Computed example of a mutant assay.
Amino acid sequence: MKRCILPQETEPSDEALPATRNTFAVNRWRNGAAMAEIDHIAEEVPVALEYNGVSHAVMLATPADLEDFALGFSLSEGIVASPRDVYGIDVEIRPNGVAVKLEIATEAFVGLKARRRALAGRTGCGLCGTESLDEVMRVPAAVHSAASFEPALLDAAFAQLQARQALLRDTGATHAAGWLRADGTVALVREDVGRHNALDKLAGALANGNEDVSRGAVIVTSRASYEMVLKTATIGAGVLAAVSGPTALAVRLAESAGVTLAGFVRAGSFVAYAHSHRLKIS
């Protein structure tokens, strides 16, 4: 499905994608003293999503796992109903950013044009450019999930997630979204400077994989906003666990969509805001 196109180059090569991090000379102030150091900084680049040759969205994102990002964004935004509606994904390096070019089914493209939607997003901004309130307040189908987790598994899961955040360790500037299996294994991890982007990347990876979404959980290193709950419900996952708190709108959506929502997941504690029965605490 995926291919990377380089200017004046016939052979595809993922190696030409922009780096996910770069180095800068900095002055660090610590304990009353200044020190010159070299620091690693996370990159963010404009990523244009084009459907059947028409530009639809431009997001600032970390230039990694862009095929997952494009597929996950397409699914979570309702542009396509199924991965089968995406016939191909090409990644094209351009002088001012990266274009991810998707070929989608005619019916999906007709629906996309009818929505007349053109996003121009800042980092992690899932709603920038939405033209109407009706487009924002989408209601996902109710999630039917058999997921069930002991509280201790959440602690262990976030420890696994942190251990696999290579870009965060290098830069301190990225979020991550992970997929927690029923057996407590964190099977997939995706990182990005934007929390929505990280979750879209995870959604794309899940759509291309063989995970049992009815029995797993999404874990994220961010707050649980409305968009994060909406994307989790679109995946079909029954549990969203976040290290920070939710918004009131997110709690209401989790209640109506059947998503178990846990926030402030820290060592030995969390707060269950919706459908706590999947966390075996009541």
Score class of each variant (00 low, 15 high):
V26T: 13
G97R: 02
A217H: 09
E191P: 06
G209F: 07
V243W: 03
L279S: 08
R215D: 08
L202Q: 07
K101P: 01
M1Y: 09
L180M: 11
A274E: 05
K280M: 15
V186I: 07
G178D: 01
G268C: 13
E135I: 03
D14E: 14
L127M: 07
T130M: 11
A205G: 11
P83R: 13
R223K: 10
T260Y: 03
G111K: 02
E77Q: 14
A173H: 13
G258T: 08
L230A: 08
N197F: 00
E150V: 08
L75C: 04
R30Q: 14
A233M: 03
D68V: 00
K113T: 06
A33W: 14
R94D: 04
I38H: 13
V193I: 00
I5A: 09
L167H: 07
A166I: 03
G245H: 12
E44W: 05
A64F: 04
Q8C: 13
G172M: 11
A254I: 06
K201E: 03
V136R: 12
D183Q: 09
A118G: 04
H196K: 00
D200S: 10
G268Q: 13
F264N: 06
G129H: 07
A19K: 13
D170L: 15
S76A: 11
R117W: 04
A141C: 07
L230S: 06
L180N: 04
I219A: 07
S222Q: 12
W29R: 11
G194A: 00
C128F: 11
E9K: 14
R30G: 10
F149E: 06
T130P: 00
H56Y: 06
P95L: 10
I235E: 02
N52C: 15
H175P: 01
A224H: 06
S282F: 09
V98Q: 01
G263H: 06
A64L: 08
D90W: 01
A237K: 05
K201C: 09
W179I: 02
H275D: 09
E43Y: 04
R252K: 15
P140M: 08
W179P: 00
E131W: 02
L49A: 01
A187T: 09
V26L: 14
V213Q: 04
V265I: 02
D155W: 03
S214L: 04
L49R: 01
R3I: 02
R94P: 02
V271Y: 12
A70G: 01
D183V: 01
W29I: 15
A163I: 00
A34S: 15
D134N: 11
V213Y: 02
R164A: 13
D183M: 10
A64I: 12
E150D: 15
L261E: 04
L199M: 11
L279K: 05
L60P: 01
V54C: 07
V189I: 12
V239W: 04
N96Q: 14
